[in-house]
């Protein structure tokens, strides 16, 4: 792969802190290798800013291999940028052309308030998980043998596909309603598909949905944007499954 270098113009959301008013700032950045990842390009911008003794842009990032779910930029009007099935850290500058203007904004949702620049608070996801995203089994290791309950491969695979969610919040960011249904649907589905999770299925779905609503996420209108932008390709089937689980639970719970 032959490296190419491009010059770009960046329009980045800058916001001092949660209470400050933010605005878009424009930066010129030259000699960006097309083999660089988007975050490496941001590193380059920050290095430039530091050399100009300006404050670098704050953004969340960690593993830089598409699995931790930290990175969270809304790039040119799309969560994680123009490629599908990709996190920002795996987006490469070869997706951009010389002379491009690139908008970089934080996730926007009431439930994800901006902390600084491009950094948002996604702890709402943690609280949803705490409301029921688990199997209530003690950690003693004194459970039954792992192979005591065979699980149909198809169910196990589907549970895995749902569990592949990295909790990045792209679904919320891209949804015009800031709905968290894909995230919650994936969690509910993972456990609903496995025999270990079925025991608590009713309480789980009711509690997680209640918490989701309390956090101020919007409602799902099935636009399907989340599925398209999800870096892990989590399917809308998971939302449908949650809807089924919810109906079962709401109708039968006492």
């Amino acid at each position: 792969m032959a490296s190419k270098f491009i010059n770009i113009s960046l329009k980045v959301w800058r916001q001092k802190n949660a209470n400050a008013k933010g605005a878009i700032e424009t930066y010129k950045l030259d000699n960006v290798s097309t083999d660089s990842s988007f975050l490496e390009m941001m590193d380059q911008l920050n290095e430039q800013l530091i050399n100009e003794r300006k404050e670098p842009v704050a953004f969340d990032h960690d593993c830089r291999e598409g699995i931790c779910g930290s990175c969270s930029m809304y790039i040119n009007g799309r969560a994680h940028g123009p490629e599908t099935g990709t996190t920002t850290c795996q987006l490469h500058m070869r997706s951009f052309n010389d002379g491009d203007t690139v908008y970089v904004e934080p996730w926007r949702a009431k439930a994800f308030p901006v902390i600084k620049d491009l950094v948002v608070d996604r702890s709402a996801f943690d609280r949803i998980q705490q409301a029921g995203g688990f199997v209530s089994v003690n950690t003693s290791g004194r459970t039954m043998d792992a192979n005591a309950t065979p699980i149909p491969k198809d169910d196990a695979d589907k549970a895995f596909e749902a569990a592949a969610c990295i909790g990045c919040g792209a679904c919320v960011a891209t949804c015009k309603n800031s709905s968290a249904m894909l995230f919650v649907g994936a969690k509910v589905s993972q456990y609903a598909l496995l025999p270990q999770g079925k025991v608590e299925a009713k309480d789980r779905v009711l509690n997680m949905v209640r918490q989701m609503d309390e956090e101020g996420f919007g409602n799902c209108t099935n636009t399907g944007a989340c599925e398209v932008e999800c870096p892990k390709g989590i399917s809308l089937e998971n939302i449908a499954r949650m809807n089924r689980e919810f109906l079962k639970a709401a109708l039968s719970a006492e």
Partner: peptide, 10 residues
């Protein structure tokens, strides 16, 4: 969003 491109995904 200042710049949004929803037609890309819905």
């Amino acid at each position: 969003y200042v710049y949004n491109n929803p037609s890309a995904n819905s």
